[in-house]
Nucleic acid binder design. Structure first.
Lengths: 204, 204, 204, 204
DNA sequence: AGTTAAGCGAGACGGTACGTCCGGTCTTGAA
DNA sequence: TTCAAGACCGGACGTACCGTCTCGCTTAACT
């Protein structure tokens, strides 16, 4: 799937970066609801047409901005592997909790989320470019655990990843509860052991 | 917390209902992004001012509309209890899957979700008025299972509810995968048994 | 012709006066263009309906306000008569010039004028109640001059009055020139003597 | 003095003409009181912003429309000169009377008048662009009469013009009497000969 | 003297128009 | 051809008033 026009040689890299930077800055300053294409163009010192020429919507601009930021940080996003799956997962989820508690990151991710929720095309793009690589890294860590005999060999890794991460993101998105390290730990334990953990099989 | 003006005796019940109905209808027809206060007013045969007089934003109108709809259906929202927890949960989650696969309901719930994600005040209202009662019903079912010895007595029910429901809503919201009955079943099983299920304790 | 409802015994004199006073005050403060019925009602501490019950338009309110003011000053409005017509007319026109140069009176009279220009019914009312008595006084002075042999006996007094006063009011209304005592004098002289004054009859 | 933004090369001449035409049409159809910017925009097939971009008020639009109309007709506005001043003036004033008795023209000129009365800036513009040229033509005719010895050489032409024309416009504006050819004639005669005409100098 | 209907303050209501913001398209002139 | 600039048509915003319509209340007039 291709949402944006293929880059041509004529495209101004200067303008492109200015637009993405302006979008990122503005979303952090005024929030997504008040973000406008005109505002981005003005802030970037760019004609509106230059935005419309290369992106189909403000969501796409924002998406590209986040994408560019993510890629700048380097594609390597492997999860830690100390051999202790539970500890490693807690480490990662605690870091996620910290990130979501940072106001700037919170605003940006909410903006992105709103776009994805509303726009199926962006959702696909998100699945391919942002969530995909991340999910691969998560699954790789779980696969390693499988190979070490710490998880069943027939475990559906997609479901497993969602079991571990979605309680956190759901609570964050809808603000249905506090986001703490304790909560991250509780989720990891519950996901790994199951809600029935410790009960004799016969009682189930 | 009070988002809307307190009702006075002077308020027109006719107009109120017309507005809520129009909002609900329109969001199902054109989606939330194209929902406008003007559109609601026109559809409801009402002056714009009558909306602005009683609600601070279109999100608040929509929220009230959903709320009124939920309350009309009667407060009874108890989950089924056949004694078989796993089967009951699967029944409920399959029904949820079906609901989310209905375009009109999908549009409505996405609209609501977008508002909640963006507006902390609405999020509080949501937690109190819509999500709260639902969550209580879910916890009640789990508590019954605890009392029947099917779940550990010290289980944190808030976490438990999130473990069961959030994978579904997360996958729906961000469209990260297909929403099927099979998926609902897989989530219930994984949540109850844990990702490590069946492994000897020593290998963990 | 009757523009306003006939007064009944039940009518509140307090409210009536409050409304007229508020209208007069507001027109002086914010100008006629920004004068609103709601504004008058609020300022007068009166319900809107009380205005609509007794007056058909804001122009009618203003008109009544001016009328009440005029009648308060006493109906006697005879022009001075020293026996010297030209001098007397100059005295009166100079006073008119002074009045029109007063900002408050200027604003009020412009407001009244705008209403009369736009609303034929108000124009009739104006002719009967405000302009009429004034014009009678003017004609009375001219009639006295006729009787003294200072003006032709067959002079059309309506035309005469307009010849004398309309240059002044026209210049004021459209601001086509400065309003000064010298101008008042020039008009009186030109009106009395004619533009051809002093030329031998044969040359005409 | 400049009321409207200076035209740039970018301005759409098509839109400009459509707006002025629509304004003129509408004022003739519904009258000035019911003339609205939205109405003009809709009739002209133009965005409201395009009006607000170039004119500060509906009065300014109307003014420009009248101005454009006047300039379209060609600058030639000389008064007739048969050598007989009185006859020529009567011809012109009778034509004016006829014009003012035409409902469409009446509505348009009243609208213009109301704006001028209320807005000093428009009054200046009016004096410069519309009334000015007309007044010059009138003064030119009177000057010709002066040169022919039919009027005193020291006559103040500004006052003279006002003496002749303002009775007519005043009576029209405030509807204080019928506008007829006879009235036009009477005014011309009175203005030229003076109210005292025919009286021996000694009696004055 | 008690009843009753009007006038009253208040303000909600369906509307119209305001003047502004922004979306997305189109045009101009410089590089 | 791209770009900055910005005019253009259009749609929605949130506000101000319009003129109508209840609501209770006060208050004068007529039982």
């Amino acid at each position: 799937m291709q949402r944006t026009k293929p880059d041509t040689a004529r495209r101004s890299e200067t303008s492109r970066r200015a637009i993405l930077t302006a979008a990122l800055d503005l979303v952090g300053e005024v929030g997504y609801a008040k973000l406008s294409i005109e505002g981005i163009a003005a802030r970037a010192g760019v004609g509106k047409q230059t935005i419309y020429r290369w992106w189909p919507s403000k969501g796409a601009v924002l998406f590209d901005a986040v994408l560019a930021g993510a890629e700048d940080e380097g594609g390597e996003t492997a999860l830690p592997d100390t051999g202790d799956l539970e500890a490693d997962l807690k480490t990662v989820l605690r870091a996620t909790v910290d990130g979501l508690n940072d106001p700037a990151q919170d605003r940006l991710l909410r903006a992105l989320s709103v776009e994805i929720v509303q726009d199926p095309q962006l959702a696909v793009l998100y699945a391919e470019r942002l969530d995909g690589p991340m999910k691969e890294a998560k699954k790789a860590r779980l696969r390693a655990a499988q190979e070490a005999g710490q998880l069943p060999a027939d475990l559906d890794l997609d479901v497993a990843v969602e079991m571990i991460w979605s309680p956190l993101t759901a609570r964050w998105l809808h603000r249905t509860g506090p986001l703490t390290h304790a909560y991250a730990d509780a989720v990891v334990e519950a996901a790994l052991n199951g809600l029935r953990r410790g009960l004799p099989d016969g009682s189930r």
